[in-house]
Amino acid sequence: MIKRAIALLLTLAVGALFASLLVGYVPDSELNHTARYYAERTAEDIGAANIVTAIIVTYRGLDTLGEVTVLFISAAIVGLVLAQGRVLNNAPNNAPRQTRAPVSELLSTGSRVLTPLILLLGVYVFVNGHLTPGGGFQGGAIVASGMLLLLLADPLKQFSHRLIAVLESLSGLLFVGIGVLGVLLAGGFLDNRLLPIGTLGELFSAGVIPVIYSLIGLKVGAEFSSMLASLSETNHTENSEET
């Protein structure tokens, strides 16, 4: 009980800190310098209607490359941590997994009808990332939800890890390649003016942003799918003997 009291005291102390922050907070009435620059110059420099997308893909493109890398590393570690022991499981037959009840017809047909639609929505979201809310990360998550539906409808399903790996590394390489092309042909790393900027608000505008965001979408979708697949494929009962 004394532990609980200490935890409560700590929480109250942090809460007092937060309260002083909250009381002293005065909302801005104008945009600050950075935001003012982005609001004024995005349409002219980048040509993307969605300013958040312009910041993520071009102004702060290097950060996004780092973010995708962090996500890749965490997906790789999840795979690595959970794969230990799975190699052993493959040698004996995986009998316990096949004793589950067969998937019902309704479920499997329904998931087969719905999955292409979900994938289509995901692609729509990341292709239109520079015009409407959404983009590579959201679209990638939607694509991964489509994979999740397949996985839920048929738990025995094995995703092709090779396909996921190829898709992931190919889109990552193309992302970096476009960035390097920007150094050679345009203003700098990940500059979007490789392609003409076009008119604001059209699908083929904002230079190379739709291409980059689609690549990010594929990469993020592949990474999330591989995380889901490795978490769902772990057969826990068999590798628990090593206490």
Binding site: S74, L82, L231, E242
Partner: peptide, 15 residues
Amino acid sequence: GVTALMLAYALKLHA
């Protein structure tokens, strides 16, 4: 990503 990592380690600890 961080949550998935924490869950993977929790699973491993439980194993």
